[in-house]
Design a protein around this nucleic acid. Structure first.
Lengths: 155, 155
DNA sequence: CTCATATAATACGAGTATCGTAATATCTCC
DNA sequence: GGAGATATTACGATACTCGTATTATATGAG
């Protein structure tokens, strides 16, 4: 099996990092597709589910903005997710036009279970790092998220 | 504007990193969708184009395996990309069943231009890091790609 | 208080993508 | 030379995405 991620001959260390970030995106997408296949869901569905479970209860509109999707598309995604019981729609008592999305805790754990292998591999990676290194990585990633966000919304 | 990426109250530093990786994936996806919208392409199309341009000339089958897509799906994607002139199909002289995919250099630059803002933001991030820190980050990302790859194929 | 306007979510239809299967062309090995 | 394997693509059924219109509720002006 040949090494699939070349990204080797890039001169600048920054270029290597950029390439690895893109590869990581593709790989995480594949992981999502495989997990989704087990669950009868698609990549974008899992993304939305992940956003809801990590970034707290959200409205469909807010979720659509965060994911960069059309509100009507979000309706279809939520229909799929709700049909499978992965997520529930509740009326917001404060604004009855609005809806809040919530992931039942047991369902969340069920999904997390399929990511166990990936999580374990990551934890092993972390175990080989010093506290300072983890700090550097976390700081970088956090700022990278913001940088990409502003670049994306700037279009 | 409230901070959208919370990922703050996670206790373990590893959990923070995992959360940021997921957020980064979503944001890179949004960036891809926005850039794609300018070009009349979709997210997955740009992913494939990126894989071809960075991981050298590839066959459709190999590309489908790397991206985790059905070969027939890849045909549709390649049809779109070729119709727009983003990519050419050439017969492999060694194996005439096979096809090699190639991105015309000028088209590659055209696409890269739309990522200029994101690249600049990234470069600015790199400028604020020491050489050692970049080394740590690059090393981590590279191993993370491999970890996720094996976890994904393990399903 | 009433009405006009704005906002949130969804229904609906047109266009399009995805994927399983089958077909075609070529290679490899005996 | 022929049988089986492999790479790619054609085709059709199914399902998704997105623009627009619709319903329900909130907000502000008169």
């Amino acid at each position: 099996m040949e090494p699939v991620t070349s990204s080797a001959r890039g001169q600048q260390p920054g270029d290597v990092i950029k390439g690895d970030l893109r590869d990581l995106r593709v790989q995480l997408g594949m992981l999502n597709r495989h997990v989704g296949a087990r669950l009868g869901l698609r990549e974008v569905d899992l993304d939305c589910l992940d956003l809801v479970s990590r970034h707290g209860p959200l409205s469909p509109g807010a979720l659509a903005r965060q994911a960069g999707l059309h509100p009507a598309t979000m309706t279809g995604i939520l229909d799929r997710l709700e049909r499978g019981g992965w997520l529930v729609r509740e009326r917001d008592p404060a604004d009855r036009r609005s809806v809040v999305l919530r992931v039942p805790p047991d369902r969340g754990r069920e999904i997390a279970g399929l990511f166990t292998a990936a999580n374990a591999a990551m934890d092993e990676l972390f175990a080989g790092c010093t506290e300072d290194e983890l700090q550097v990585i976390a700081g970088f990633l956090h700022r990278a998220v913001e940088a990409v966000r502003t670049a994306a919304t700037g279009l």
